[in-house]
Design a protein around this nucleic acid. Sequence first.
DNA 1: GCTCCTCACTGAACGGCATTCGGTTCGATG
DNA 2: CATCGAACCGAATGCCGTTCAGTGAGGAGC
Lengths: 154, 154
Amino acid sequence: MDHIDRALLVQLQQDATQSYAALGEAAGLSAGAAHERVRKLRARDVIRRTTVDVDPAAVGAGVLAYVMVDSAAWMGDSGADFAAIPEILEAHIIAGSASVLVKVRTATTEQLQDVLRRIYAIDGVSGTQATVALETFFERPVSPHAGDFSSPQP
Amino acid sequence: MDHIDRALLVQLQQDATQSYAALGEAAGLSAGAAHERVRKLRARDVIRRTTVDVDPAAVGAGVLAYVMVDSAAWMGDSGADFAAIPEILEAHIIAGSASVLVKVRTATTEQLQDVLRRIYAIDGVSGTQATVALETFFERPVSPHAGDFSSPQP
DNA sequence: GCTCCTCACTGAACGGCATTCGGTTCGATG
DNA sequence: CATCGAACCGAATGCCGTTCAGTGAGGAGC
């Protein structure tokens, strides 16, 4: 994981369809070398997968909400219960008053209500508190330079 | 946007490196037809871009937190201020007591604190409330079938 | 200091697949 | 019924992903 790997990751995050020749040029490498480095990044699971960004509104998921889930019991083994609800895009155990935080996308607020109903049905859930997003400023992938931000440049 | 387009989107979300021949087979199409449909999905911005999923921990961003940002003023024009902080991955205007919700990834909790300091420095921000994720159950892309979930099948 | 080994890169060659295009079918429109 | 357009198939072309032999730098061992 040196600065060349990070440059490759940045390039691939921006556009994973570009040729290895262009990728290598951006990182100061030949196409073969770029290919080899990317292959290793995949093998090490630094690159988990290559995927496409889909416009949520275009597939009927224009409503975005975050839901704090309160519980009466330990929720550490309930991951599958949340994963079974397809409208839930993320689920995290959190520190604080609630115990689980989930990110939900639905087509309408009625469907959001239905998702809340299904969350209530999960064992141990004692309450929810939903927060609806009115406007999204931006959503972007994690920066491969995250580690650099507070350490002095070498 | 018919069921074939949705099948293509699902396939591409799972693995955008597969050949158009495989893609077409999964959707009951020839390679040429699959290519043409995907081209149109890109042109319509249903597919925003092709990218790679990077392991946050591998690039020094192992700490995940959600921050509720309270403000004294209207924050609708402050998107750029949040975007200027690279550790912020998402920023949304929300309904409710706080006015902005941001998703943050950093290497350490010390760096998280530094991000909070920079958020405080944004014009109009009057307070923050951070929630740290202890464990992530899952993170996944939006389902192209979201619209189907509560409407009867046609 | 010298040699050996490993690792990463270059440049070229091969083959697969992305991309394009002509022809066909089907449905809608007038 | 005739015309038009949209969508698909199958094949051809050429680009580019993938592999490989060769080269050089760096480190370990003696």
